[in-house]
């Protein structure tokens, strides 16, 4: 009986050891849902790019989107940290506590701000300063190390050149600063709205 106990114990140790080794060597894929934001970059009228690209940058936490839009009147304004040379961009938040992820994500607005600065620096709006109204939304993921992945035009503006410029802004950006260490999700999903206004 003692031999059986020893055998059984050794078997358990072996199984746990193998499982731990496998677990350590192969990182378990994080399948948690990404944290989602909707952000819109508004191109200000008549200002040259890229410096003024961030002018009118609006961070809209929208989950659900429609609800966030409905609250657009309740926007609170804080000065942007980045925003290129002109630096007069506005940083707006809304939808406080609307979505589960949104409430937490508001703590990371400095990161989003930095991200917007980088992206708007890379955005070459072909219609900058023109009297056109265009809106395109690009969706993408930011991995924990800051890599931009899965860039897709989610909502087309109807103007192929404009859409391409928006997508290109992200593709050129490629690498952003790593996500804040205290950020709880595996990756950050962003819906970035590029808005062209006269």
């Amino acid at each position: 009986m003692r031999r059986d106990f020893l055998l059984s114990f050794a078997g358990h140790v072996l199984v746990v050891g193998i499982a731990a080794l496998v677990g350590m060597s192969r990182a378990v894929r994080d399948t948690r849902r990404p944290i989602v934001f909707s952000v819109s970059v508004v191109s200000g009228g008549g200002t040259p790019l890229p410096q003024a690209g961030a002018q009118g940058t609006t961070l809209v936490e929208s989950k659900p989107k429609s609800q966030a839009k409905a609250q657009s009147t309740a926007q609170s304004k804080t000065p942007a940290k980045g925003g290129g040379g002109s630096g007069s961009g506005t940083f707006k938040r809304q939808g406080l506590g609307v979505g589960v992820e949104g409430a937490e994500a508001l703590g990371y607005s400095y990161y989003l701000n930095a991200m917007l600065t980088r992206v708007s620096d890379n955005w070459l709006n072909p219609y900058a300063g023109q009297a056109k109204v265009l809106t395109a939304t690009v969706v993408f993921d930011i991995e924990r190390d800051g890599t931009v992945k899965d860039v897709k035009v989610e909502k087309k503006s109807g103007d192929a050149a404009y859409d391409a410029s928006c997508e290109r802004a992200l593709l050129v950006t490629d690498k952003l600063p790593p996500l804040p260490p205290e950020f709880p999700g595996p990756r950050l999903k962003l819906h970035l709205e590029f808005e062209q206004k006269p």
């Binding site: 499982a19 731990a20 496998v22 677990g23 350590m24 990182a27 378990v28 894929r29 994080d30 948690r32 924990r144 996500l179 260490p181 205290e182 950020f183 709880p184 999700g185 595996p186 990756r187």
Partner: peptide, 12 residues
């Protein structure tokens, strides 16, 4: 405190 994105592995 929610766990960060670091994978917890088998023993997590």
């Amino acid at each position: 405190v929610p766990t960060t994105g670091a994978s917890p592995g088998f023993l997590g």
